[in-house]
């Protein structure tokens, strides 16, 4: 469950580190010893992904920039709490997600925003728009148009869905890593991911359905 406070504690023990994670740990260790260029290297590696994630959650450029800065500043301040038993990226993503959710809470003071909201498991998992797509639907649009369509679709999702979808399907974290980052169970991540994927599919069908086809049901 996402809490009011930012979680900065060490992540649970993970399995053996990959070469990439070892290289990251080396950078973190150098940063801890005062080598600011090592921390700058970590920033350059991840700032794009963190900014995109923050944009997806907050849908606001200023808030996303704040989240980006706060996440890296907090990470630097609390580097001694990073114990290296998980990827640096999952650690900083966790900080960034909490910062982004706090931004949303500030906007919606009458309603808390949590990743642990109860969800129905019934009708919403049933797809509404059933129409075949062109084989390569994205080629119908320019890069900018496509980006706009994808952003608009993801913007329409609730924070609990867009966050899980972005981490899992855009950033490529595993289900287990996503669960660790968001402090959710694996079944909760799977449930949210399925709903996010189906909702996005519904939204994109409006744009990508095969020309000449109206949305129709075969049954």
């Amino acid at each position: 469950m996402a809490t009011e406070s930012v979680t900065l504690g060490p992540a649970p023990a993970a399995t053996e580190l990959s070469e990439e994670a070892k290289a990251e740990l080396e950078l973190v260790n150098r940063a801890r010893e005062g080598d600011s260029s090592a921390f700058s290297a970590l920033i350059r590696q991840y700032e794009g992904k963190i900014f995109r994630l923050a944009m997806n959650i907050t849908q606001n450029r200023e808030d996303a920039e704040d989240v980006l800065q706060e996440a890296f500043l907090k990470a630097y301040e609390h580097l001694d709490q990073f114990q290296g038993n998980s990827k640096f990226y999952t650690w900083i993503v966790r900080i960034a997600v909490n910062q982004a959710l706090m931004k949303l809470r500030k906007r919606k003071t009458d309603r808390s925003v949590s990743l642990d909201e109860q969800i129905d498991t019934g009708e919403d998992t049933v797809a509404r728009e059933i129409a075949a797509w062109d084989p390569d639907p994205e080629v119908q649009y320019s890069q900018d148009e496509l980006q706009g369509i994808l952003n608009e679709a993801i913007d329409g999702l609730a924070p609990i869905y867009k966050t899980v979808f972005t981490l899992r399907d855009v950033d490529g974290l595993s289900t287990e890593e996503t669960a660790e980052v968001l402090d959710l169970t694996v079944p909760a991540v799977k449930s949210r991911l399925l709903r996010a994927r189906l909702q996005l599919r519904d939204k994109l069908t409006r744009f990508f359905k095969r020309k000449g086809d109206d949305a129709f049901a075969y049954m």
């Binding site: 797509w133 639907p137 994808l150 979808f165 399907d169 855009v170 994927r197 996005l200 599919r201 994109l204």
Partner: peptide
Amino acid sequence: TTKKTISVYK
């Protein structure tokens, strides 16, 4: 179409 949704975001 769900497969294509994931693919287009990836």
